Structure formats: structure tokens, C-alpha cells
Computed example of a mutant assay.
Amino acid sequence: MGMSVTISAAAEHDAEQILKLQYLCYQSEAELYGDYTIEPLTQTLDDLRAELGRGCVLVARLGEEVVGSVRAAVDTEGTAVITGLIVHPRLRRHGLGGRLLAAIEERLAGEWGAKRFRLATGRRGEGSLRLYLKWGYTRTDAEPAGRNLTAVTLEKEAGPAGAHALVTSA
């Protein structure tokens, strides 16, 4: 019988695994846009370590291996900006992205006082867009974010702690 994936707060010693996973996960995005200079592929280990210290970072583990991650920071107005939602390619389309999103929303609303959530994804990232719309996010903006990249911004209001707006199709 296989191991189950657990989600927990990231620790500083997770930084290297997160960075390697991030590099792996964003290869397809870079290929999609023909731009290998996107920030997730150029971020340094020191920058990632600094990010771990400033915000809320979660990891998904399969045993000792980091197979997913998500991070966020909450501004003074209560807006949580969620970034870096990644899932190892071999584990995609099994609900892990939704589990990570739900876990960070719950933590941000409960411990960080978030009133709303905001995230962005590439316009051509159909899988990501589908996930965010399924979880109740609505498009609020789209703007150029690189040579060939248009970033779509999505938002939703935070509900009561522990309540997740999973939207199902009829």
C-alpha cells in the first residue's frame, strides 16, 4: 500500500526541495510561452529562503519528498496574495492542487486574518484557470507580464474559517 500525501508548514530546510520542484514544474509554463526567463525559473535559493521567512508557505510531502507547495503573504488591508502553487507533474490531476489551495486559504483566513484571496496565472494556463474557477475565484484583470505572457488575476472573498467555496458543475 502506498503512502499518503501530507500537507504542513514549510521549514527553512525545505527551501532547496521547493526550488527544485518549482524549476521542474515551471518548465511546461516556460515552454508554453516561449520564455525561460520567467521569475520561478530565475529565483535564487536565497530569495526563496527569504520568502519562507516573510509569509505563509505550505508543502505537500510524500514521505520525505516535497511533491507540492504553495505560498502567500497578507497585506495590511487583509488581501492574501497566493503564489507558487506547484504540484509534481507525476501527481497532477489527483486533487493535490485543490488540497493545497484549501489548506492555505484556511490558514490565511484563520491565522493571518485574510479577508480576500488574490492570485494570478498565465492566460494560456488552462489547467490552473480551471482549478481556480472551480474553487470560486473570479477573473478581475489581465495584463502583460513578460514577452509573451499575459497574467490573469483572480480573486475571491474569504469565507468563515474552514469554509471552502468549491464550485461544482451541475
Rank of each mutant, 00 (worst) to 15 (best):
G2W: 06
G2I: 05
M3L: 08
S4I: 13
S4V: 13
T6D: 02
T6Q: 10
S8K: 08
A9F: 08
Q17C: 04
K20Q: 07
K20A: 15
L21Q: 09
Q22K: 10
Y23V: 02
Y23Q: 09
Y23T: 06
L24K: 13
L24S: 09
L24R: 07
C25N: 12
Q27H: 15
S28H: 14
A30M: 14
E31F: 14
E31T: 08
E31H: 14
L32R: 00
Y33E: 04
G34H: 10
D35V: 01
D35R: 00
D35T: 05
T37G: 06
I38Y: 02
E39S: 12
P40A: 11
Q43M: 08
L45S: 09
L48K: 01
R49P: 00
A50R: 10
L52P: 01
G53D: 13
G53R: 06
R54G: 02
G55E: 11
G55M: 10
V57R: 01
L58R: 02
V59W: 01
R61T: 07
R61N: 04
L62W: 07
G63M: 05
R71L: 14
G78V: 04
G78D: 09
A80Q: 05
I82Y: 06
G84C: 09
G84S: 14
L85N: 11
L85G: 13
H88N: 09
H88L: 06
H88T: 07
R90E: 12
L91W: 10
H94R: 09
H94A: 15
G95A: 12
G97F: 02
G98A: 13
R99V: 07
L101G: 03
A103V: 02
A103I: 11
E105G: 11
E105W: 03
E106W: 05
R107L: 00
R107A: 06
A109P: 06
A109T: 04
E111W: 01
E111Q: 04
E111H: 07
E111V: 10
A114P: 00
K115L: 14
R116A: 06
R116E: 02
R116C: 03
T121E: 10
R124T: 11
G127V: 11
L131I: 10
Y132V: 02
L133H: 09
G136I: 01
R139T: 14
R139D: 15
D141H: 08
G146N: 11
G146I: 12
R147C: 04
N148E: 04
A151S: 15
A151D: 15
V152C: 14
L154H: 10
E155K: 13
E157A: 11
A158G: 03
A158S: 13
A161H: 06
A161P: 12
A163I: 04
L166F: 08
T168M: 03
A170P: 01
